[in-house]
Design a protein around this nucleic acid. Structure first.
Lengths: 193, 193
DNA sequence: ATCAAATTAGACCAAATGGTTTAGTTTTGA
DNA sequence: TCAAAACTAAACCATTTGGTCTAATTTGAT
């Protein structure tokens, strides 16, 4: 039957709350309350807030990685359109979310990257895994002569996703998708073969 | 003679501390200690922590704006090279800073943009002023046929600076300028006429 | 059935948080 | 010169922070 609470549920709540509010702005008590678990259980599963954050990043990173994999595998479009649709999808998700949260990885990296080596390391690792998947599609696009060959596939993948992260700043302060749409339009003009 | 403390000194300290550590991670007491002022003086100048943050953003935004103006005015290079040198300079500053802090505006926008309307508004405003200055140079570059005409000057300016912000994530978690250099190389290939 | 391990529960803790208050000191301008 | 305004100083406050502790309960393996 298992016990009453389990790690994944706490991680899911933590992921949502931290993504929306940031790391330092969120206290453990808040997560506890929203997850409906007592403190004893939390510290049974996690050593500290920092340890919890690492596992949240892992949880989100891995979940997202398999989601990505699925999306790319199932796509029936050409490589460059697969990528474009993917970013369109992400923009849509952020719109549904009222342009509030952005990406946990980007948020955590920017807020805590220089403060805690442990979080920086985990953040970077998960991001790199995503990049590998994106780079695969970029490479296919290059082979299909859809995407420029002037730069390496991994370089372009990084350019894409980091560039996308750059749009979160304005998304959050303007609460609008306008800049994300412009970014999409321009970037995919630029990387075209 | 004036009083012992003045707003600007506190703002300068606050700017440094918040840029490096974020908004929620920094307590007023820490700023007080580093600025060497008692709490009474602080709350004489500022209504609240939030009010203080707004003024820090303003202070930094305006200071940076005139700095930018000077740089662009004094530049003897062609428009596109003026811009490239400018971003090279920024990358250098971040290197000197051990890739720690990034940009206050980007940090604050990402950390607090959706949490406090007041901070979002001020952040967006200062960013927009910068963008106007960058767009001026972009326009000159377009007129000189150095920069692509496929997109508007303001669009390109936004693309440049937001893209640059996107590189901060990896800068912080990798503590390296590698990705920023790659971004520079690629972006200026892309926007070329 | 029993027992050790895992989990639950929440009271408790010291330290830090943003902020208020009160009292005193300087400065300014009429 | 002198009163009002601006500023300094720090003790104080309720609340919240991350984290500990102890005791009870539940679980799975034997």
């Amino acid at each position: 039957m298992g016990y009453k609470h389990n790690k994944e549920d706490i991680l899911e709540v933590g992921y949502q709350v931290i993504r929306k509010n940031g790391y330092h702005h969120v206290g453990i008590n808040q997560i506890l309350k929203e997850a409906g678990i007592p403190k004893g259980s939390f510290y049974n599963f996690f050593e500290s807030k920092e340890d919890f954050a690492i596992q949240v990043i892992q949880y989100y990173g891995e979940g997202n990685r398999s989601w990505l994999k699925g999306i790319f595998q199932e796509s029936t479009e050409t490589p460059i359109n697969t990528l474009k649709s993917f970013y369109k999808l992400l923009i849509g998700y952020n719109e549904d979310d009222n342009f509030c949260s952005g990406c946990l990885i980007n948020n955590m990296g920017n807020e805590t990257g220089r403060l805690y080596d442990s979080l920086a390391k985990e953040t970077k690792e998960q991001f790199d895994h995503w990049l590998d998947l994106i780079a695969e599609i970029v490479k296919k696009g290059q082979e299909a002569k859809e995407i420029t060959n002037r730069f390496g596939a991994k370089e372009i993948a990084n350019y894409l996703h980091s560039g996308f992260y750059g749009t979160f700043f304005k998304m959050k302060v303007e609460r609008s998708r306008k800049d994300m749409d412009t970014w999409l339009k321009m970037t995919f003009e630029f990387i075209r073969a």
